[in-house]
Amino acid sequence: MTAIVSAAAAAAVTVLAVSVPAAANGDRAGARSLGTPDYGVCRGAKPQCYHDWGNFDLSQGTRVLVYSRTAGPRHANLGPALAPGMNPPLSAANVAQQGIVRLGQENGWTTDWTEDVAQLSSPSRLFDYNVVIFLSTTRDTLDDAAQTSLRQYVRGGGGFVGIHNAFGTEYNWSWYEGLLGGANYYDHGPYQPGTVRTVDRHDVSTKDLSGRWAFADEWYNLVPYPSQVRVLAEVDESTLARGVAGSMGHPGHGDHHPLAWCQYYDGGRSWVTTLGHDAAAFASPPVSPGAAEFQKLIVGGIRSAAGAAPFCR
């Protein structure tokens, strides 16, 4: 698939636009993204939309903050809700958080974690981190102070990574929807195996992946469909045995059903994936089909969003 790049939405930035097939824009009967959402910021796959203001120092290594607060349904791989404060004890059931911490240990970054929204209320606190990860957060997981803090952090050149149900978060905040690539969760079909296509193998997050690899997930359907982003991986819908229609009857996305993509957004970097439903995807050693590939994918996404590797290339 041809990478999708943008015309920047602000600051009179001119970016070459690449045409894509109608299906790549979700243009399938009943599955179209109606209208053209405008988030009022500079966004796209070109670095003109990045604020390189020198707010982050990698000389002391990469620092990562994992935020997994749920204000609605909670994925089982998050385990029980965490105690307030920074770095509360993790149990064996907090599989996803433990997995990100372990990947940091293996790849040379320092990880803090929290589900305490007060820890995100200060922009100066967030600027201590090279990347902030929303790990299967749900619903209105931020209060007003934390929303402002996250926006100021991104505008200052911060890195954002959204994993799985980060797409089920802050539904009514349009700026956040834009941060996800102008995309939002609609529904999903049954959890089932399928085949992932790595459609762009030039990015740090995908360069070591096979062209096709097995994985099992819920295969989120998205409305709006992501726009002005560089798509990195898709699911081959023909490999889904029971289809992708969810409980509300979404017909899927046809030939181009994106799973991971990147963009510059409002001064910062955003790398996101809808994958990551099952605890087995985060386990060590990675024994379930595709778990090793999934972990390589998110490691590359975290490193590039943090500025420790080239981003969205």
Results as ranks from 00 to 15, higher is better:
1 M>I: 08
3 A>Q: 14
5 V>M: 08
8 A>D: 14
12 A>T: 14
14 T>C: 07
15 V>K: 15
18 V>R: 15
18 V>H: 15
20 V>D: 03
23 A>S: 11
24 A>C: 14
25 N>Q: 15
27 D>W: 09
27 D>H: 08
29 A>E: 09
29 A>K: 11
33 S>L: 08
35 G>S: 12
37 P>D: 13
46 K>D: 02
51 H>T: 13
51 H>G: 05
52 D>G: 07
53 W>D: 08
58 L>K: 12
58 L>D: 01
70 T>K: 04
77 N>V: 13
80 P>F: 13
86 M>R: 14
86 M>N: 09
88 P>C: 14
97 Q>K: 06
100 I>V: 14
102 R>C: 05
103 L>C: 03
103 L>E: 09
109 W>S: 04
111 T>H: 02
114 T>Y: 00
115 E>H: 05
120 L>F: 13
122 S>G: 00
124 S>M: 10
128 D>T: 11
131 V>T: 09
132 V>I: 10
134 F>H: 10
142 L>D: 00
144 D>F: 10
144 D>V: 12
145 A>I: 10
147 Q>K: 15
149 S>G: 04
151 R>M: 09
152 Q>K: 13
154 V>I: 12
157 G>C: 04
159 G>N: 05
160 F>M: 05
166 A>D: 01
166 A>T: 09
167 F>T: 02
167 F>P: 03
172 N>V: 01
172 N>E: 15
173 W>L: 01
174 S>Q: 10
175 W>L: 07
177 E>I: 04
177 E>C: 00
179 L>V: 05
183 A>H: 07
185 Y>Q: 03
186 Y>D: 15
188 H>Y: 01
191 Y>T: 12
191 Y>H: 14
191 Y>F: 11
192 Q>F: 03
193 P>E: 04
194 G>C: 11
199 V>Y: 12
200 D>V: 07
203 D>H: 07
206 T>H: 11
207 K>L: 01
209 L>H: 11
209 L>P: 14
210 S>D: 08
210 S>W: 07
210 S>R: 14
215 F>T: 12
223 V>W: 06
225 Y>I: 08
229 V>L: 06
236 D>Q: 08
236 D>R: 07
239 T>W: 09
239 T>C: 06
240 L>T: 06
242 R>T: 13
248 M>V: 13
253 H>R: 02
257 H>W: 06
258 P>A: 01
260 A>K: 04
263 Q>D: 02
269 R>N: 08
273 T>E: 01
273 T>W: 02
273 T>A: 07
274 T>S: 13
276 G>H: 09
276 G>Q: 05
277 H>W: 07
280 A>V: 08
281 A>E: 09
284 S>R: 05
284 S>F: 15
284 S>A: 11
285 P>C: 04
285 P>A: 05
285 P>V: 05
286 P>T: 12
289 P>F: 15
291 A>F: 06
293 E>S: 15
293 E>C: 12
294 F>T: 12
298 I>R: 00
301 G>W: 04
305 A>T: 02
306 A>I: 04
308 A>V: 11
309 A>N: 02
310 P>N: 06
312 C>K: 07
